[in-house]
Amino acid sequence: MHFATSALALVASAIAVSASTVTFWTLDNVQRTVYFTGNPGSAQINPVTVSNRANTTVNFPGQWVGNFYAVPNGQANKPGMLGEVNFSGWNGLTYFDVSAIVDPTDQNNVKQMWPKVSRNPMSGCQVFPCNNVYWLPDDVQTKTTTESDLITTLGSGSTGITFTQN
């Protein structure tokens, strides 16, 4: 009986580790493709097309670390503002941020990120520039949460959510 209980707990633990998501919420009428770049050792994730017709949720493999960026349809596949994530990181936390290091002029694609349930903390800007993104490599802007489901906004517009600054 003890073995069966332990095995069940192990399976439940593995499922919990692999149950990470990012839901993309498009705030304008631009259709985009979101591209994912995993760090070495992280699984490859295929690009997804998103629009304002419905939010699009992408499932991430357990302990995935990397980033994503959005490109409006018809434009060149060139990284811009990044959403960076580390699911099941140190102490089991999810680490995330919006990064302007690659292309700070990309101000209409990846905008904001936050934990789905608590909505706190939030990384990014509704209107750029702001002091809540990575602008320089040594900025201290990484956010953490115990949640494994994040929301990321894309495009110009407002969610109607008021966030508190951390």
Rank of each mutant, 00 (worst) to 15 (best):
P72N: 04
S158K: 03
F60C: 10
I15A: 11
M122Y: 00
V65Y: 12
W114C: 10
G124A: 08
T37Y: 06
L82R: 15
N67K: 11
T49C: 09
V65A: 14
L8W: 09
C125E: 04
T21P: 01
K78C: 09
N77K: 14
H2R: 11
A19I: 00
Q44H: 09
W135S: 15
T94R: 11
Y35P: 00
D103R: 07
N73F: 05
S158L: 03
W64C: 06
A54Q: 15
T144N: 09
N86M: 13
L27T: 02
G157I: 01
N73S: 12
P47T: 05
I15N: 13
A100G: 06
L154N: 04
V30R: 03
D106C: 04
G160F: 03
T142H: 06
P137G: 06
T94Q: 09
V30P: 01
N29F: 02
T94E: 07
N132K: 07
P40L: 01
T164M: 12
T152D: 04
Y134N: 11
P47W: 07
A100P: 00
Q165C: 01
G155L: 02
P79N: 04
V127I: 12
F128P: 03
D106I: 03
I161A: 12
A43D: 12
T23Y: 04
V22N: 10
T164R: 15
M122K: 14
G62R: 03
